[in-house]
């Protein structure tokens, strides 16, 4: 058995889908998979619902300006104010491609370990209650510890 690590840095829909497809695929090949969500990638893990937590003004602004969860992400290209993303989602649904929330559920069900970067959470004012269930909170050392024994590492 080998292991894979993926750093999810981007908060773009297309990049997040690629990461999650690789993570699901690797888990299905019998590998241990660890995903480390940092910076914009944290938005992938946010709950769709607004959660009431105590925040400072700037943290509230960040929370308001960034996409709230996997279903709200936009394409990195051809977004066109959301029209491109809507078109892409519609065609993917028609072609029976799993949605990003479905890919997240499936990855978690297969035991993919998901870690949220605590420094990014602090900077962006994202609290644990605002993230989906089953997410570990840790720093770069935890990720590096996993990467040490992995034979594939991706920065997406």
């Amino acid at each position: 058995m080998s292991s894979k690590t993926i750093i999810m840095f981007s908060g773009d829909l297309d990049k997040a889908m690629a990461s999650l497809i690789i993570a699901n695929g690797a888990a299905a090949m019998g590998d241990d998979v660890t995903m480390f969500f940092t910076f914009w990638g944290l938005n992938v893990l946010r709950k769709a619902k607004k959660i009431k937590v105590k925040k400072e003004f700037m943290e509230n602004m960040f929370g308001f300006m960034m996409p709230r969860g996997a279903d709200k992400l936009a394409l990195s290209k051809m977004n066109f104010g959301g029209a491109g993303t809507a078109m892409m989602k519609s065609i993917m649904k028609k072609k029976n491609v799993n949605s990003l929330p479905e890919l997240l559920d499936s990855a978690q069900a297969m035991g993919v370990r998901m870690i949220a970067c605590t420094m990014s959470m602090d900077v962006m004012g994202i609290k644990q209650e605002e993230l989906i269930e089953g997410i570990e909170l840790a720093g770069v050392a935890t990720y590096l510890g996993e990467a040490d024994s992995a034979n594939l590492n991706l920065f997406i």
């Binding site: 695929g25 888990a27 299905a28 090949m29 297969m110």
Partner: peptide, 14 residues
């Protein structure tokens, strides 16, 4: 049938 990548290997793995 109808499942897209990585659906088939995920089902097979389970």
């Amino acid at each position: 049938r109808g499942l897209q990548c990585p659906g088939p290997i995920v089902e097979l793995f389970k």
